[in-house]
């Protein structure tokens, strides 16, 4: 599905569905309908990414953008169903908002299309770094170009991105529910609150059935990443999904304790170690070439996946932990 072909009915209908679901999500009356419509939007967006020839982004959007974000929103919206001051927006305001939004979007689209249509300044060669990037990928030890870019050509970007996740996890640790933060709980929270109310047996059965499958799926995603779409981020998010399922269904008991914090540190520490190794062995930070580059990348991806899973789970626990 090369981007140059003209737009088929599938892409057009998906694009339309995206706009309509987005408008519905933005102007929904209740929080819960907003969250559910957001999930529908996420599904459409994942399919759209796949259809325009970006499978990695589609997978990431599905697992991270819709899966984990959906879980975060879903849980928070149900724990706080009614906003403190729910003002009924009138129909006129909704129409005005939609018109205004569409106007700004159209203006932005017009200027962007004009800018994109103009031939690239001066240099005649095709736009983008496709040629150079695909030529350089074999040296990175992985075949899939996206993973090659993420973990070798632009690995410093991915390291800083892990630092962003570390920052989010630190905020989660700071706002962990009191009973979790390991500090002396005054009078100790009631036992039931400690374990979280047990979900009905059918849910516990479903989770104990599905969790191993999703774990297997996460592992498969991780190792597929070197040859086809997949990789540490999607695998990490699938891992987080398992943790969230286990926590909410009461099958297991996760808390932001020393073990979780240890997992949070591991990923960035490993990445910096690889960076330092590149400096010591080669002559530049994060240098990763030669025959064992592939194995080091895979090992690093495993640790990154675990840390990404732990970070997203920590954020879920902090935002959805039972405090009341």
């Amino acid at each position: 599905m090369s981007p140059e072909t003209t737009v088929g009915p599938l892409q057009l209908s998906l694009a339309l569905a995206l706009i309509v679901t987005a408008a519905a999500t933005l102007y929904s009356r209740h929080r819960l309908t907003g969250v559910v419509l957001f999930l529908v939007f996420g599904v459409f967006l994942s399919i759209y990414w796949g259809v325009i020839g970006a499978p990695d982004v589609a997978l990431a959007e599905a697992v991270i953008g819709t899966g984990v974000t959906g879980a975060l929103f879903g849980y928070t919206a149900t724990v706080m169903p009614r906003p403190a001051h729910d003002r009924r927006g009138s129909i006129a305001r909704t129409i005005a908002g939609l018109a205004g939004g569409a106007g700004i979007g159209a203006g932005l689209g017009y200027f962007l299309t004009r800018a994109a249509a103009a031939p690239p300044g001066g240099s005649g060669e095709p736009v983008g770094l496709t040629g150079q990037a695909t030529a350089a990928v074999p040296a990175t030890g992985v075949e899939h170009p996206i993973t090659g870019v993420l973990l070798n050509l632009r690995s410093y970007d991915t390291l800083m991105e892990m630092v962003v996740l570390l920052s989010a996890a630190t905020v989660a640790v700071a706002f962990a529910p009191r009973s979790d933060a390991g500090s002396s709980t005054r009078g100790g929270a009631p036992a039931s609150e400690q374990r979280g109310p047990a979900a009905p047996p059918i849910v516990r059965g479903f989770v104990s059935l599905v969790a191993p499958v999703v774990l297997l799926f996460a592992a498969w995603l991780l190792f597929a990443g070197s040859t086809q779409p997949g990789g540490a981020f999607q695998a990490g998010a699938a891992l987080a999904a398992v943790m969230i399922l286990v926590q909410t269904s009461g099958v297991g008991r996760l808390r932001i304790g020393p073990a979780m914090i240890c997992l949070l540190l591991l990923g960035v520490l490993a990445f910096i170690a690889v960076g330092l190794g590149g400096l010591v062995l080669g002559d530049a930070w994060l240098l990763l070439r030669g025959e064992h580059a592939g194995t080091v990348t895979i090992a690093l991806e495993c640790i990154l996946a675990v840390t990404i899973g732990a970070s997203l789970a920590a954020v879920f626990l902090a935002s959805a932990g039972r405090r009341r």
């Binding site: 962007l112 800018a115 103009a118 690239p120 300044g121 001066g122 240099s123 983008g128």
Partner: peptide, 30 residues
């Protein structure tokens, strides 16, 4: 990020100096 996308579309590079050399005035204002 949108601005970076536009610069990448116009100059096929993300490096600041290279982008600066290649970016023309009519591509650069947006």
């Amino acid at each position: 990020l949108t601005a970076i996308g536009l610069v990448y579309a116009a100059t096929s590079t993300l490096d600041m100096d290279l982008a600066g050399q290649r970016l023309t005035a009519e591509d650069g204002w947006l």
